[in-house]
Design a protein around this nucleic acid. Structure first.
Length: 418
RNA sequence: GUGGCUAUGGUGAAGCGGUUAACACAUACGACUGUGACUCGUACAUACGAGGGUUCAAAUCCCUCUAGCCACCCCA
């Protein structure tokens, strides 16, 4: 292979893009129904944006970003996630001046320098949604319900919702201290990574899969028992709203997030079908992010889902569209007539294919079959003079004689459409 | 970043040191002589991921690299 794509960067070929469009269209429909509008932001931002939002000490910022210096000597980074850029735009355009409540969604490629695996690539795609300006847990519940209905609409039952609360700057330090003192006595049982995490981010130890750590942290204090009154009430309301709308969920008090900006409600849509790539969508509240980025003190909540993973869950369903009609011609003389008929039908919204290169009738019919055309028609001298032709319904071989006019063909071919 | 496994045509694959790289699917053309799907015929890898080496002889053994997969890690 002389020239190949960059490692971890993939092509999406036409036989697969139908599935992607289906996911995107479903998301647009569900999100817009909920009052969200699309925002399109650049794939590249100043590096500082991500350091300040995601957190300097996170793995993403520390070792996974595509960061480089451009010709103007600015440090820029290919976005590793979407929320930071959307919030940057929200602040930069002072969108809050008109209305602090913004409901935004986005979709597009994200970039992270990780070891590629199934369901995890260096260029991957996310669809995300954000609500700003609402403190009330109603917003949390709407976001969760919207995410749940997206998966229902798309026809998947597998990813299931898990929720948790990470508390706020008021109560999290206390919890962290409680967890530390719990872990202190069990340091000997923790893996090397967790010993390090003890200092940097003790909450991570709860998420460790090493058997020894799972055992050692079995009786660890739960975040949920250390929430301050406001956070506890908030979380309770989220649950109540979810119950009111009969949204299924489970509570996972060990769920942690890899991005530093999350507060209070956090959640994941998880599946057991994707190996270690269990998170299909994830998100949470980020009440401090906007002010942290230099904007006003406006809260926010949102999520992102991984398109590659959703596509994997959908499996190899066939989303290909199929021609309504294939026009075959007997000889060069009839091609003008065929071309004009095709042109007229295309303008009338009928999907038509015809032979491009004057192949044998046999070849043309084979092609009609291969393309799964619903109807085929052969145009020769007889048809041209009589201005009528037999249209063959490919599935059962039944032929119908009809005038060679756009209107007549359209009504014949359109009859059994869909 | 750390382990492990794998690597033959468009695809799935045989081949396990010795003349023309099996087979199937897909593709192209043709036969059935103005109509596809079944059947039949023909064509289709200067070549076995790349580069070195061992050998009289390598797709088959060894080394390096690259890529993919799986697990860890991380996360969507």
């Amino acid at each position: 292979m002389a020239l190949t794509a960059v490692k971890g960067f993939n092509d999406i070929l036409p036989d697969e893009s139908g599935r992607w469009q289906y996911i995107e269209q479903t998301a647009r429909r569900v999100f817009e129904l909920n009052g969200f509008g699309e925002i399109r932001v650049p794939v590249m931002e100043k590096t500082e944006l991500f350091c300040r939002s995601i957190g300097d000490a996170t793995d993403i910022v520390e070792k996974e970003m595509y960061t480089f210096v451009d010709k103007g000597e600015n440090s820029v980074t290919l976005r590793p996630e979407g929320t930071a850029g959307v919030m940057r735009a929200f602040i930069e355009h002072k969108m809050y001046a008109q209305d602090p409540i913004a409901k935004l969604y986005y979709m597009g490629p994200m970039f992270r320098y990780e070891r590629p695996q199934k369901g995890r690539y260096r260029q991957f795609h996310q669809i995300g949604a954000e609500i700003t300006g609402v403190n009330d847990p109603l917003a949390d519940a709407q976001v969760l319900n919207m995410l749940t209905s997206f998966f229902r609409e798309i026809g998947l039952t597998e990813p299931t919702l898990q929720i948790n609360s990470l508390g706020c700057p008021e109560c999290r330090p206390a919890y962290r201290a409680a967890l530390r003192s719990f872990l202190e006595g069990r340091m000997g049982h923790l893996c090397e990574d967790c010993k390090r995490r003890f200092a940097t981010n003790p909450l991570r130890t709860l998420d460790c899969k090493v058997p020894g750590c799972v055992e050692a942290t079995a009786g660890a204090p739960s975040v949920l028992e250390h929430l301050c009154n406001d956070c506890d009430e908030h979380f309770g309301s989220v649950r109540r709203y979810l119950d009111l709308s009969a949204t299924p969920y489970s509570i996972n008090s060990r769920m942690v997030r890899g991005l530093d900006y999350y507060t209070r409600t956090t959640f994941e849509m998880v599946t057991g079908l994707l190996g270690s790539q269990s998170a299909v969508a994830a998100g949470g509240r980020y009440d401090g992010l906007i002010s942290q980025l230099g904007g006003p003190a406006i809260p926010g909540i949102g999520f992102a889902m991984g398109l590659e993973r959703v596509a994997l869950l959908l499996g190899a369903q066939d989303f290909a569209t199929v021609p309504d009609l294939f026009i075959a011609t007997m000889g060069k003389g009839e091609r003008d007539v065929a071309f004009c008929l095709m042109d007229g039908l295309l303008k009338a919204g009928v999907r038509v294919e015809m032979d491009y290169e004057g192949k044998s009738l046999k070849s043309q019919m084979r092609r009609a079959d291969k393309l799964k055309a619903r109807y085929s028609v052969v145009i020769g001298e007889n048809e041209v003079t009589s201005e009528r032709a037999s249209f063959k319904h490919m599935a059962d071989g039944v032929q119908t004689d009809t005038a060679l006019t756009v209107a007549a063909v359209r009504s014949l071919v359109g009859k059994s459409a869909q």
